[in-house]
Amino acid sequence: MSSLLNRSLIKNLDLFRSLSEAELDQALKSAQSILLQEGSTVFTQGEAADRFFVLLHGHLKVVQVTPDGEQVTVRYVSPGEVFGIARAMRRSHYPATTLAVQESIVLAWPSSEWDQFIAGNPQFAFNALQTVGQRLQDAHSRIRELSTEEVEQRVARAILRLVDQSGAKTSEGIEISFPITRQDIAEMTGTTLHTVSRLLSQWKDRGLVNSGRKRITVRSLDELIRLAEGPQIQTDQGDPVRGVTPS
């Protein structure tokens, strides 16, 4: 892939939008373009973090294996996002595995160039900092959800996050625009495949979602939001309060 083609692919990304063409060429000087087939691994948990990446096309899944051997789906990466930035967190090894859920294209840079790269690209540095902050916030939210919310509420929240990240309007509703399995949802929400399958079947019967092989379409967004917000109780004044379960 030529430098000119690379420039045309990234110049409209938020990460690089403020750069001149000369600065884009400089940023791409040491970049490597990688085509990933579905199921291909970008890097694995525990591997030396020798590169950082930007996703140009497709979608990636980030998974982590806990000390007791349980696999957790941490998040999904959408086009335009920077990932694999262990260097920014002063980590020498990748804390998770990242793999393609569909054919994808990434750009990779050597981690040894991270400090110089962000010094010459303030917008990239700002977005990278935002990315780290968002991931910390997401981690805290997931801990809270696992501690305080019922399974149905957690699953509804997870699907809404995916819709917000990459939902596409169709004649049936809003479809998550990349392959997603029921097992993936289970790993995102700390529950079992059986429970997710049961919930999605119930929601399908109620007209909330359609789900098929690696596809989920939300048909009733308002109802799914209501489930994600949790149950309501009445106050003494008769006003509903969301997210509080009666004792």
Rank of each mutant, 00 (worst) to 15 (best):
Q64M: 12
T181L: 02
T97H: 01
N121R: 14
T181G: 08
S78W: 07
T191D: 07
A88V: 10
T97F: 10
Q116P: 00
I185D: 00
W109Q: 02
V132E: 10
T131I: 05
L199I: 15
R75F: 07
G167Q: 00
D138W: 04
I159L: 11
F117L: 13
R182Q: 14
L136R: 11
V163G: 03
R198Q: 13
Q130R: 14
S201G: 15
V82H: 00
R144S: 14
Q116L: 07
F178K: 06
L200Y: 06
E175H: 12
A186I: 01
S201N: 14
A168K: 13
S92V: 06
R144C: 07
T195M: 08
S171N: 15
S78Q: 10
V132M: 09
V65N: 08
S166W: 00
V106E: 02
V72D: 03
S92K: 09
W203G: 01
K204Y: 11
Q202V: 14
M188L: 11
A108C: 06
R90A: 10
G173D: 02
L193N: 14
E172P: 08
L160H: 10
V132Y: 03
D115E: 15
F126E: 12
A156G: 12
Q153V: 06
Q102N: 06
A96S: 07
P79D: 02
V132T: 05
I105P: 03
R144Q: 03
M188A: 12
Q183G: 05
A128G: 14
Q71H: 04
I159R: 01
F126R: 11
R142M: 02
S201I: 08
E187C: 08
T195W: 12
R206Y: 02
A158V: 08
F124D: 09
R135I: 11
N127Q: 15
Q116V: 06
S166K: 14
Q165W: 01
R154L: 05
L129W: 08
V77I: 15
W114H: 10
V74E: 01
G207V: 08
E70F: 07
S141V: 04
Q64T: 03
